[in-house]
Amino acid sequence: MAGEIRLTNQDRSFYEWQLDVPGMGEEGQSKLRNTTALVTRLGGLGGPIAFSLAAAGVGKLILAHGGNLEPSDLNRQILMRHDDLNTPRAQSAAKTLHSFNPHIELETVESHVTADNAHGLVSKADIVFDAAPRFTERFWLNEACVRSNTPMIDAAMYSMEGQVLTIVPGVTPCLACLYPEEPPHWKRRFPVIGAVSAMIGNMAVLEGIKLLTGVGKPSLGEMLYVDTLTMGLRKITISRRSDCHVCQP
């Protein structure tokens, strides 16, 4: 982790209810305080992810999201504000986060993840939260994380279902082990209720917090699948592909 920022009395006053969570304490909070997390993107999943990371006191958030805010974003992108329509989404999200928690550092990147910027973005982070709506972006991030040995929490949803995969390079399978090729049927536009994406996003945050602090047990090697139509939670044991072109030597 970069830096050794100690908790201040002000930090303790903000997070005192969280410090009481068994296993968290000052040590766990300090780990969060000293963590830089990359969140990409900041939509229905990434917005709640960034919000909950800010609430938890993660010291620095790198917020990557391109494009301007559109009316159709507002059923789920909870960091955005109506007043910011037609302005950069990353800025709108950063404003909301800053007013919510001005004591964490925010860096905005007004771009989605690309093949060119993935490694640079990942290299600045201790952990990555992947909430991109295209498989290509997810694959670039996965590869950059595996190459740099950076953990990545991959969160995805569609309509009333969602999944979370915690990837720790060298320990767990990677995203390419789960999806060895780009699915041809995936379309950029997908049905979404904001509550579903927020739920899946918050599950991803919990996986990240557990990984960072040692609280509880992250789901290593298991994909969490949620069906909100029935409120069913399923854990699927995922294996590493011996021919994975990303995580195998």
Binding site: A131, A155, M157, E161, Q163, F190, V192, S197
Partner: peptide, 9 residues
Amino acid sequence: FIMTPIAGG
């Protein structure tokens, strides 16, 4: 159990 890949974000 069978699911099609999802990537909604």
